[in-house]
Design a protein around this nucleic acid. Structure first.
Lengths: 148, 148
DNA sequence: ACTAGTTTGTCAAGTAGTTAACATTAGCCT
DNA sequence: AGGCTAATGTTAACTACTTGACAAACTAGT
């Protein structure tokens, strides 16, 4: 019972958070949450390629490949080849894409601060640490089980 | 930054949990995690209808309608009409479906206990309470904002 | 009793992901 | 240099959802 309860609670909480973000982004930036993640993930990378972006987003290379044209058409992402490297595509945000990513991230940050902070009796900093701890612990356990 | 970190952490943790469950269920019961959820959710209900099941699973009625035949073909779920009620379908697990749901749930419970418990320095009971608190607080906040 | 509105289940069309297979390119190694 | 191996990006076919429209069946109000 213990296990089920906490995994269900986690799923429910994530659902609330993500769908709230999605609603806010659609209403204010005509962007879905997953499009938002695509942009901010791209922005946070140094010399991004589709393959690495896929890994960071936790999706397949095929998924990134299929979505790229959407961002190109809207002039949010520029796809190019670096001379001397015929294998990798090079991705970068356009100025417009960068602006959209920055503004929407700031907006979302602000909105969530309002939702989270007011009269919050929960230490979010600490909660984050605890969750990270649980995650790494799980992963370590799984590895040691698989090795055996 | 605060907001982003914790929502990302939550998403990552949920991903680890759900994909672990999926892997275990596929390997041992030839069941995906979402098929598992379908069965256990159905089992936990009193007089289930497709519409109510959809609500509990957090998906559309259409999604449930489309998936039902899969469970019927494998003799896991029985779909019928209760006389005097032409509107609602009545769902119930077959004996085979009930067995599968029970056994896979027990199995998953046991596996997760191993992953969670050993040397865990985290009080999961308390963590669950905290998460629930955050969730309800968020929902309440959102309602009061929308009302204004 | 009837009409107006609501709920239910299903279908069609669209979306966003998956895996598998493929050609191409890059790196290695001997 | 040549040849194996691995990685990249794209495509095709599939899956599991979505929304919107719909007919059929219930529920109320008067």
């Amino acid at each position: 019972m213990n296990r089920s309860r906490i995994t269900f609670t986690l799923n429910e909480l994530v659902y609330v958070l993500n769908s709230t973000a999605d609603r806010l982004l659609r209403a204010n930036f005509e962007l879905t949450y997953s499009q938002f993640l695509f942009l901010v993930t791209l922005m946070s990378q140094d010399k991004p390629t589709p393959s690495y972006l896929a890994e960071c987003l936790g999706v397949s290379r095929a998924a990134v490949s299929q979505r790229l044209s959407w961002f190109q058409e809207r002039n949010l992402v520029r796809v190019s080849r670096v001379s001397g490297n015929e294998k990798n595509l090079s991705l970068e945000l356009t100025r417009k894409g960068e602006l959209l990513a920055t503004q929407s991230a700031d907006f979302l940050e602000k909105e969530f601060r309002i939702l989270f902070d007011g009269g919050s009796s929960v230490d979010l900093e600490k909660l984050d640490k605890t969750l990270t701890q649980v995650k790494t612990q799980l992963i370590k356990k799984m590895e040691s089980r698989n090795a055996a």
